[in-house]
């Protein structure tokens, strides 16, 4: 691997996607994590380092119920779809 100064050509091709995904994908997700620590004052979200939101969610039964149900559905569909795919593939590959 040769390390030299990147050419204009390589930057024009590679940077747009990087900038787009950083600005509109990575940053919003990080921002979402950041505002999970914010608190509400006077009906406004204010920057803060507050673990109240996390505490409330993690100690609430409904959250864990929903989480367990999601996990169960995800596991079931993963197993089923892989089984479907395996059988279909076996059919396609039969007699080869």
């Amino acid at each position: 691997m040769t390390r030299s100064r990147p050419s204009l050509f390589s930057l024009v091709l590679s940077l747009p996607l990087l900038i787009w995904q950083l600005a509109f994908f990575a940053f919003p997700l990080l921002f979402l994590i950041a505002i999970s620590f914010w608190s509400v004052r006077n009906f406004q979200m204010t920057p803060d380092l507050n673990f109240g939101n996390w505490e409330r969610i993690l100690t609430r039964g409904t959250f864990w119920d929903a989480y367990a149900r999601s996990a169960m559905l995800a596991t079931a569909s993963a197993v089923l779809t892989v089984a479907f795919a395996a059988i279909s593939f076996a059919y396609k590959e039969r007699g080869k």
Binding site: V12, S14, L15, L17, L18, W20, Q21
Partner: peptide, 27 residues
Amino acid sequence: LGFGGAYTDFRYNFLGKKVYLALSLLP
């Protein structure tokens, strides 16, 4: 954007390429 990303992956090797690809393909 996708063409740029695909060509970058095809043609170049650089530090942090894995991060670049992850960021591009994760959404």
